[in-house]
């Protein structure tokens, strides 16, 4: 049965929210991927918890709606369990760099073949606007009424250093480019990280600012050092594929080239292996 890409679930994002741009880009990316022989049925998704994660209910893609901070680990388990699937994790900045930072760093380190799309609105939106790991110094929210007294992280720098083999930045205000970036990230075999600049109209309405400072990175992907240098840059903020490298995905070696669910041993063979193991 052919389904609409957008489900009938009531959409509760604020009008003008950057999450719409990400969802539209994902819809296009799925089309692009189908043209590249990656059918929608082989894309399996997960999401954290936050405004961003509501994308799970709004798109008719299969998956598991995970918990706050754990979507990266959920995604890795999915890929390891069935390496024949393409796994996409939709995460928030709080999700991925706060609660779940360890999973992010290690997924990149081991080059797990998943795609993390990080909706970076610089705030904990769903919980009413507290500062997050990418909020600027001075950011005022209900938990920092006198202004954020921490400096923000630069997510691309972290991910490049951690070992991501695909690192990109997109902007929810540029759906066409974002769709191409996400499609390339999903197609890439290895850990793919996409930071999406996603203004929250309610808490961090950076649209005007972004429209000024977000540029298009024409020459990407770059050499590692150049990608890192550009990732550190604060202005302008180029969007595009910063870095891309071919490297065997983690799931190939850990599974010894097998697909756990498709190549499962038959019972007789398993029982014989158990007997042999016991015998010596």
């Amino acid at each position: 049965m052919a389904r609409e890409f957008i489900t009938e679930v009531e959409n509760t994002w604020c009008t003008g929210c950057g999450n719409f741009g990400i969802m539209n880009a994902m819809k296009k990316a799925v089309g692009i991927l189908e043209d590249r022989d990656i059918p929608k049925s082989r894309i399996f998704m997960t999401a954290g918890i936050g405004c961003h994660a509501k994308i799970f209910d709004y798109m008719s893609l299969s998956g598991l709606y995970s918990i706050h901070g754990r979507a990266m680990a959920t995604a890795e388990g999915m890929k390891l369990g069935n390496p024949g699937l393409r796994i996409v994790a939709f995460c928030g900045d709080g999700d991925a760099l706060g609660e779940g930072i360890a999973h992010m760093m290690h997924a990149a380190k081991r080059n797990s073949d998943i795609t993390v799309v990080m909706h970076d609105n610089g705030v904990y939106a769903l919980t009413t606007g507290q500062r997050g790991p990418t909020s600027p110094r001075g950011f005022k929210g209900p938990s920092t009424p006198e202004g954020n007294n921490e400096d923000p992280w630069k997510p691309l720098v972290l991910m490049l250093e951690a070992g991501a083999t695909f690192a990109a930045r997109g902007y929810s205000g540029n759906v066409e480019q974002l769709a191409e970036i996400v499609a390339a990230a999903v197609e890439h075999q290895g850990f793919s990280f996409v930071q999406v600049l996603q203004p929250s109209v309610t808490f961090t309405n950076y649209f005007e600012e972004y429209n000024e400072i977000v540029t298009t990175l024409e020459e990407g992907p770059l050499e590692f050092d150049e990608a890192l240098r550009l990732a550190r840059q604060e202005e302008p903020l180029p969007a595009g594929v910063f870095y891309r490298k071919e490297k065997e995905p983690y799931e190939v070696s850990i599974n010894r080239g097998r697909n756990p669910v498709e190549d499962r041993m038959r019972r007789e063979k398993r029982m014989k292996a158990i007997g042999d193991t016991l015998g010596g």
């Binding site: 598991l64 995970s66 680990a73 390891l80 369990g81 069935n82 999973h103 599974n255 292996a273 193991t277």
Partner: peptide, 30 residues
């Protein structure tokens, strides 16, 4: 290898448990 099982050591027990959930969702007995 002989038993047809993948054994993995992730970064924490939090990762362990969530990976097992992800693996089961695609049909792997974890």
């Amino acid at each position: 290898k002989k038993l047809g099982v993948t054994a993995m050591q992730p970064e924490s027990e939090i990762a362990v448990a969530n990976m097992a959930v992800g693996a089961a969702a695609v049909g792997a007995r974890a």
